[in-house]
Amino acid sequence: MRKSLMRMTLRQLQVFRSVCEQRSYSRAAEDMALTQPAVSLQIRQLEELVGQPLFDYIGKKLYLTDAAEALQRASADIFGRLESLDMQLADLQGSLQGQLSLAVESSAKYLIPHLFAAFRRDYPEVGLQLVVVNHAQAVRRLSANRDDLLIMSQVPADMALEFLPFLNNPIIAVASPDHPLCAREQLSLQDLTAWPLLLREAGSGTRQAGEEYCHQKRAHFPQTLEVGSTESQLEGVIAGLGLALLPRHAVRRELQSGALCELPVGELPLLRSWCVVHPRGKYLSPVAQAFFAFVRNRRSEINALAERFAAAAPGSTPGS
């Protein structure tokens, strides 16, 4: 190892990480409660130790060099290990403490707070940093090792990942309650294609799963409307703009209140599994290990929680 690297300080790495996150020396100075010259000095000293420039300015925008990206990954590992040490020391004192960094696909955001609340009853001193992303963003975060754990429904087969399926994620067809299809007792996917289908943005896991399944069943929708979120899909369907394929967990309140109608489509629900995922070989903090073990060992409790949480409209059976 280069002797110069041994002279790096944690403070320098903290300043460096702030500049990386803020993409600005001045905003990093505000974040770190330092002056801008002090930030510049810390980065300059760090560049001397590394032996390469860390940032480039192009068109008044700050970009990370290859050396900076390598240092960013190393610093994330260093601070992750320190946080893990803090958790282990707390564990030795008889309590698990620390923060779980968790990324979830957006259609799971309705359920995961309830799941974490159940986990926190066992570990009341654990905090949560929750990031909601679409499927494409989740894959990028896995590649960059940004989070302790991710929860997603379609695990990429071309990545070296450890994953644990823990809960069914049923995708159903919904319409506004006054839609003509709601009066039908039995439908096929093909019956839905005469109406517009509201879709999430490209990169959404629910959209990808729905499109692949409809293609497999030869149900082609000539009219589609793209919206930017599950909430927009819900409002669009309620407003009568069309139909949507959505996770039952995400529409439970609207089904219970009668604001939406679940269509009796013979080929649905489309069943996918929620999985807790991390890169293979990743060092898991004690908090992440505890959460992974909770999901693995408490399946019956999680299923019961999901059934209460995702109860379907009156008269239908949850999870059917």
Rank of each mutant, 00 (worst) to 15 (best):
W274A: 12
R146Y: 10
N145F: 13
Y283A: 15
G51Y: 10
R248C: 14
P279C: 12
N169W: 06
A259R: 14
A117E: 15
A202F: 13
C275S: 14
I238F: 00
W274N: 13
L225Q: 14
D178S: 15
R120E: 01
A293Q: 10
L5N: 02
Q52K: 15
L96S: 03
S18H: 07
V174T: 07
L270I: 06
S320M: 09
A290D: 05
L115H: 04
G80Y: 06
Q208E: 14
L111Y: 06
E30C: 10
E235R: 15
A209W: 02
E231M: 07
S75C: 09
V15R: 01
Q45W: 09
A209R: 03
E226G: 08
L62Q: 12
G258W: 02
S229K: 05
L100N: 05
F294P: 08
R120P: 00
G258P: 00
L62A: 06
L130S: 03
L192Y: 08
L268W: 05
Q289W: 04
S143I: 15
M1L: 12
S84D: 14
F163C: 09
V39A: 04
L85D: 09
A312S: 14
I302Q: 02
P279M: 04
R296L: 09
R253F: 10
S316I: 03
F119V: 02
L197T: 05
R121S: 09
M152G: 07
Y123N: 14
